[in-house]
């Protein structure tokens, strides 16, 4: 029987959650015994090869591209997990949510004290993902099956949750592994 597959993505996040996954240190050897990595920045695989058992999402949705990737993950993953405070709550990127989008763009590209932009134009290239009106936690966009908060969630949190799911056991994390910071 082939190994189950896992896929990961970073949306509006800082890659800190992925770093935390690497922080499982030598346990990554146990992990690759249990799973194969599918689409993920860890192996640089850009496309799904088929259905995967577990999808880990870091970051919330800040752009139309984030939404597309998240929906693609939902379609391909049996179990989809929001990883980290940005995926579960919006996190740091969601600090822009209390300011209207146009004001954010004007501050970033026109009025900010360190901005050098002689044309005064706000970038509008089709290659640049379109910003949503605000940053959304993943569960406000697609159905999410599990939440692992933390900034980032600790390596232990990630490892214990993933292993439990792969072994078909309940994800019963101890008190010290559910943290918001």
């Amino acid at each position: 029987m082939s190994k189950p597959k896992i896929a990961t993505a970073s949306l509006a996040g800082c890659f800190g959650c992925h770093m935390s996954l690497l922080d499982i240190d030598e346990r990554i050897l146990d992990l690759v015994e249990l799973v194969d990595f599918d689409k993920s920045p860890i192996n640089d695989l850009k496309k799904f090869t088929g259905k995967v058992q577990i999808g880990l999402i870091e970051g919330g949705c800040s752009t139309d591209e984030n939404v597309q990737v998240l929906r693609d993950f939902r379609r391909h993953c049996e179990i989809l997990i929001s990883v980290g405070d940005c995926a579960t709550q919006g996190g740091i990127p969601a600090m822009r949510n209390t300011v209207p989008l146009l004001e954010c763009l004007e501050e970033a590209y026109c009025n900010g004290p360190t901005v050098y932009n002689p044309s005064g134009a706000i970038p509008n290239d089709p290659e640049v993902p379109l910003l949503l009106d605000k940053v959304y936690p993943c569960h406000e966009v697609v159905k999410i099956d599990y939440f692992l908060p933390g900034c980032p969630p600790s390596a232990d949190t990630l490892f214990q949750a993933i292993v439990a799911l792969l072994k078909n056991e309940p994800v019963d994390l101890p008190y010290e592994l559910i943290k918001y910071d």
Partner: peptide, 22 residues
């Protein structure tokens, strides 16, 4: 507030965030 959420094992709130301007 955070400690209560931890005690109750809340991983994420079920309600939509309001993000009020304060």
């Amino acid at each position: 507030l955070q400690a209560l959420a931890y005690r109750f094992g809340i991983a994420a709130p079920r309600y939509p965030y309001l993000f009020p301007h304060r």
